[in-house]
Simulated assay, not measured.
Amino acid sequence: MSTELMLAVTVVLAPFNVLKQPHPKVLLESAITRLPDILSYAVSIGLIDALSKKCMKIREPIEAHQSVVLSVLACLGLLTKFTDVCPKNSSSSKLLSVVKSTELFGTISLLYATIVPVGEKIPPRTVSVAASAFNLILTIANLDLDVFQSIMGQESLLLQYLDVVTILLKYCGPKTNENRETQAVIVDLVATLGFLCANNKQNQNRFISDQSSVILKSLSKLPKSFDIVVYPTLLCLTCDNDGAKNVIGKEFDLKLIEDYEKSDSGKKNKMLMLLHSNSKENNKSNK
């Protein structure tokens, strides 16, 4: 599938994003009715799988290859759009089956191949790829948290993810004021950490280990403007976990984090709403 065609399909799908864009009632109803068929068809003909393989084929840095970068960006954009418009019901099962079989559409392996060999001096096109990849990962986590956490529970995949996160925080963290893409990388990257640890004690404990201490230190050095995403993530890291609170309390003021949770912004935060709703469900099931 050519880069131009991927971009064209992404544009065509834009009106179907019924959750974010207002439309006349007729178009809205039409979109809702046709979305499952469109997604099912895209999966059935192998389009989603083919797009995933484009990401999975990348085995080395691609900064010097502009056409490859553009193709990967178009691919990530189209996969993000398909995931973004996917209804959160039974019709998502076919798409999620590809998410599982390709390990998040190959995004983690793509990030690892393009970023880790480069180190902390990440060139601009690679930053763009990272921003698009983390946006896709976050969109998957929003679609189905259980599937996201299950896939990321694989040790090798999680270690690759942690390596990428560590490097990006070191590189992009100090440069968040330079351009929007470094900001976008940090915002979506930090949010994926929160979704990964939401109501998941095993993952919480991974991030308070000595191995991951550098990630917490990097989060503590981010500008105050990022508190709006850092605080929800830290609340996911510490929820019902006293050990995590003790560790994170060494780098952050827990009182400020708790105050954010009680604030109007905290009450409206999607990550925290998901955290609390899942926590209530778990409490009911344990009774």
Results as ranks from 00 to 15, higher is better:
6 M>V: 00
9 V>W: 10
13 L>R: 09
18 V>H: 07
20 K>G: 12
20 K>A: 15
21 Q>F: 11
23 H>D: 04
35 L>I: 15
41 Y>I: 12
44 S>F: 01
44 S>H: 05
44 S>Q: 09
53 K>A: 11
54 K>L: 15
58 I>R: 05
64 A>M: 02
64 A>P: 00
67 S>E: 08
70 L>D: 15
70 L>P: 00
74 A>R: 02
77 G>T: 06
78 L>I: 10
78 L>Y: 04
82 F>Q: 04
83 T>A: 12
85 V>F: 09
87 P>F: 02
87 P>I: 01
87 P>Q: 03
88 K>V: 13
88 K>Q: 13
89 N>D: 15
90 S>G: 04
93 S>R: 13
96 L>Q: 10
99 V>C: 12
101 S>T: 15
103 E>K: 13
112 Y>K: 05
113 A>C: 11
117 P>N: 02
119 G>V: 08
120 E>I: 09
123 P>V: 04
126 T>A: 04
132 S>E: 04
134 F>H: 01
134 F>V: 08
137 I>K: 03
139 T>C: 14
142 N>F: 08
143 L>T: 03
143 L>H: 03
145 L>Q: 12
146 D>H: 13
148 F>L: 07
148 F>M: 08
150 S>A: 10
150 S>G: 04
151 I>E: 03
152 M>Q: 06
153 G>S: 14
154 Q>L: 00
156 S>I: 09
163 D>W: 00
170 K>M: 10
175 K>F: 06
176 T>Y: 03
180 R>P: 00
182 T>S: 12
182 T>V: 14
184 A>C: 11
185 V>D: 01
185 V>Y: 00
186 I>S: 06
193 L>E: 04
195 F>M: 07
196 L>G: 01
209 S>R: 05
210 D>G: 11
211 Q>V: 10
212 S>C: 15
215 I>T: 05
221 K>F: 04
226 F>D: 14
228 I>L: 08
234 L>M: 13
234 L>A: 12
238 T>A: 06
240 D>H: 13
241 N>Y: 02
241 N>S: 03
242 D>V: 14
245 K>F: 01
249 G>Q: 10
249 G>N: 10
252 F>Q: 03
253 D>M: 09
253 D>N: 15
253 D>V: 14
258 E>S: 14
262 K>H: 10
264 D>M: 12
265 S>C: 09
266 G>K: 09
267 K>P: 06
273 M>R: 14
273 M>L: 15
277 S>P: 02
279 S>I: 05
280 K>L: 11
284 K>P: 07
